[in-house]
Structure formats: C-alpha cells, structure tokens
Amino acid sequence: MTHPAAPERASSLSMIITLGGVAMLSGLLVVLTWQLTLAPIQENQRIMIEKAIFQVIPGAQQRRSYRLTDTGLEQFDPKVTKAKKTDLKFYAAYNNEGQLKGIAAEAAAQGYADMVRLLYGYDPDCQCIRGFSIIKMTETPGLGDKILTDAAFLANFDALDARLSDDKKSLKNAIVTVKHGSKKNLWEIDAISGATITSKAVGKAINQGAEKLLPKLSPYIEELSQLQTLPTSQAEAKQ
C-alpha cells in the first residue's frame, strides 16, 4: 500500500543546515551563560568553603590553603595551581592575631544514598577533632541529615580524641562510630539511632582522612603554628 500523497522528503542539505544552525545557536547560548555565571558560582563556592572552615574551627578568622606533596609543605592557591591526586590538601585557619586555631581538611565516605563529603576541623593543641561540616551529601532529609542538627550527636565532636600513636605513624585509636548509647571512649562517636549508616559514614570519613593526613602533618605543626608576618595583600583570606 502506498501513501496517496507521500509528503516530499526534505533534502539532506536542509537537514544539515537546520541541525548545524541549531547546534551553533545552542553553543552560543551555553557559552554566554557560562561566562556570565562563572564569577558568581566561584564566589558561591568560596563562601561555602569559608563558611564550612570557620564553622568547624572555633575562633578562626582567616584561612590559608596548603598542600603536602612528596617534597614537603607548600602553600598554594587552588584557583591558580591544580593539586595533584597524591597531594594532601588542607586549610590552616588563624585568628586575626595570626595564631593557628586549627586545621581543616576534606574527607569522604559512603553513606546511605551516596558519598558523604565533609570537612573536619582538627585542633593541634588538644589533638582532637573539634567539628565537621557537610560539603555535599544526598542523605535522606529528616533522617540522615540529623547529623547536622542532633545535639547529642554533635556533642561527640566537642573534643573527639585524635591523638597520634607514640611513633607518630598513625592514630593512637581509630575513630569509630558505635551503636547509639554505647560510647565509652573519647575516640568513639555515638551514632544517632535511625541514622546509623550516615553516622557511621561520618566516623569512617574522619578516621580515614585523619589517619592519612595527621601523621604526615605532625612535623609541620610547629611551622604552621604562627602565621608568618606577610603583607596582608598576600594573605589569601578575605575578611
């Protein structure tokens, strides 16, 4: 059976012109939007990281980005230089007098829905974790996100023990999340009942992150402890 009036087929050329034209228009629009939104997006990211650092380190007023490479400690600007995968990146936070208030570093572990990425604050004076802040997670609202609001859970991080072992090669006690109500030691995190998996992810992330970073960092704490009197323009931190 043939169609009585089969519509004429469009020529290949007109198809190519249409698709090419639409693709070009599309590219133009996307690039334009990217250029226009680049500055506000970067600003948003900077504010988010800064807010997170100041939240996990009480008393912090300015911060610097550092990385530990194979050769040693080095200050760097993440916007200019890209860190290598093997580098350990961290932030050192100071108060306005230039005293080191703490170290903040990123860590991640598998949660209930997806990776839980967080930033934890380490206080070299007490050798303990002072707090954490979530950078990105997709945990269930109302359940997993209790880790940010549950007062009893957050109390775990008033001074979570992260001392190094005597040979300074690893943590003296691994940080672990224990079942709700069974916390006995300072290096244990009391899980939230009903959000155990997310609580465990927080513990695991901090443990892995601290285990990797803190032993390597310990020789440099002295060096970091006082902000070198640099001209303020060189300091990366903005008030």
Binding site: P7, R9, A10, S14, M15, T18, L19, V22, A23, L25, S26, L29, V30, T33
Partner: peptide
C-alpha cells in the same frame, strides 16, 4: 524551518541548551 525528519533531534538540542543554562 525544521524538516520533520530531524525534528526530534532538533528539539532535544534546543531543550538541552536551556537545561544547561
């Protein structure tokens, strides 16, 4: 202006553009 043979492809490109924006 859109030939009907390539209409779906064209629509998707247009939609994807605005989604990216």
């Amino acid at each position: 202006a859109i030939p009907k043979e390539v209409r779906i492809a064209t629509y998707i490109v247009i939609i994807a553009t605005f989604v990216t924006i």
